[in-house]
Design a protein around this nucleic acid. Structure first.
Lengths: 144, 144
DNA sequence: ATATTTAATGCAACAAAGTTGCAAATGGAT
DNA sequence: ATCCATTTGCAACTTTGTTGCATTAAATAT
């Protein structure tokens, strides 16, 4: 987690660009996402911002970030939703997230591999694809 | 949901093969999986078997089926774990699940596309892949 | 700068999902 | 039929997520 000055500037831009009022909690949470090297679960945010941001606010902030397309969810095999910032052109509503997600089994970080595009697959007759998600589990760069 | 006589026979075999005692709840739940055309969430099982099987028993049954490799989890974007029977050679512990999962946005069923193998992807330097998961969202055969 | 309006926050109370310990019931073996 | 091991159901609990409402803070207009 690295709080560079650039992030603080970005935070304001992103919020305003999405017509969200710039509040303390939103800044804190968005900064977390920008400075994090992996995806974040609700619990991560609560823990980090302990005694600062109410549980309910975290839920509502994540929800509005989702609606605006600032963050996206990453599928998981366990029961925890993880979120990451959208680095592509995610407009409100329609959201493209065509990159592979990597889940490290050592540090259990989830990393967006922006450069790795999910390959297309040929489906059996009658199945009309709309969106595809891919998670690769393994060992990440830091954990080798 | 279609309870063919074949399923009832299979249920016994599968349980015994995995050294699990053949109990009422296990039979009911395993039958559900065999006769279901899609994956099942914990809630589905509870609802279907309402007033028959205790919540806790459902949790524990799913857990032991997982450990034995009888069922596997399917990644999801929302917060619900879904399970499906392993039709491949899933041995205890190590579990291979190399097929694509299809999630219908109409009926929200999750279907194992056993015939569609998840393609390999080339990862950036330093990432060692171990397992991959793929979910395709769209419209299924029944919902066209 | 200050007042006004609008939206976001925190609190409380609740609902849902998942976990744990333990006594009673059931299955498998003798 | 009897015994032992396992499984089940119940109760109590923790964790996670939701909703309504009064308070507070941010954005806009004055």
């Amino acid at each position: 987690m690295n709080h560079s000055p650039t992030n603080k500037e970005q935070v304001n831009d992103i919020l305003k660009k999405n017509q969200l009022s710039v509040t303390g909690s939103r800044k804190t949470i968005l900064e977390m996402f920008l400075s994090s090297d992996g995806a974040l679960a609700h619990a991560d945010i609560e823990k980090y911002a302990a005694e600062k941001i109410d549980r309910v606010t975290v839920y509502r902030t994540l929800q509005s970030f989702m609606e605006k397309g600032i963050i996206h969810t990453i599928p998981s095999v366990d029961n925890s939703i993880r979120y990451a910032v959208c680095k592509n052109d995610c407009t409100e509503g329609h959201h493209h997230d065509n990159h592979v997600h990597f889940l490290c089994s050592e540090c259990s970080k989830t990393i967006c591999l922006e450069s790795v595009v999910i390959p297309e697959v040929k489906l059996p007759r009658g199945f009309k694809p709309f969106e595809r998600q891919m998670i690769v589990t393994g060992v990440c760069t830091d954990c080798q």
